[in-house]
Amino acid sequence: MTQITLVQGDITKQRVDAVVNAANSSLLGGGGVDGAIHRAGGPEILAECRKLRASHYGKGLPVGRAVLTTAGNLPARHVVHTVGPVYGGTEYERGAELLASCYRESLRLAAQAGDRVVAVPAVSTGVYGWPMADAARIALRAVEDELAQGPAAELAEVRFVLFDAAALRAFEQARDALEPGPRGAGEG
Rank of each mutant, 00 (worst) to 15 (best):
A113C: 11
A174N: 09
V123F: 04
R77W: 04
V161Q: 03
D176K: 11
E144T: 06
G60E: 08
E91A: 07
R141T: 13
R104T: 13
H56A: 14
G58V: 06
R137K: 14
L178Q: 15
G60M: 08
A66S: 05
E172I: 02
A152V: 06
A133M: 02
V80G: 01
P151H: 05
Y92E: 15
F160Q: 05
A47L: 11
T69Q: 09
W130E: 05
E48T: 07
L68P: 04
A135D: 05
H78C: 09
V79R: 12
L155R: 05
L68E: 03
N73A: 15
V127W: 09
L140K: 04
V118K: 07
G95R: 05
S124W: 08
V118F: 03
A47K: 15
N73R: 15
A133P: 03
A111N: 02
A135S: 10
L147V: 01
A142V: 04
W130R: 07
E48G: 08
D164G: 03
R137P: 00
T90E: 14
L46F: 09
E93P: 10
A152E: 04
V63G: 01
A119V: 14
G126D: 07
P85T: 13
R141A: 12
L46M: 13
T69F: 07
H56D: 13
R175M: 13
R77Y: 01
L98M: 10
V120W: 00
A136K: 03
A136R: 04
V120M: 15
S55C: 04
N73E: 14
D134N: 14
V63T: 15
G88H: 09
A139L: 03
V80I: 13
Q173H: 12
A96E: 08
G95E: 04
V143W: 00
Q149P: 00
K51E: 15
L61Q: 05
G84C: 10
V120P: 01
G114F: 11
V158Y: 02
G89P: 11
D134Q: 15
V120C: 10
E48N: 08
V67H: 01
L99Q: 05
A54R: 14
T90G: 13
A96Y: 01
N73C: 07
V161A: 07
A135N: 08
G89C: 12
R175P: 00
T82W: 02
A66E: 01
T70P: 12
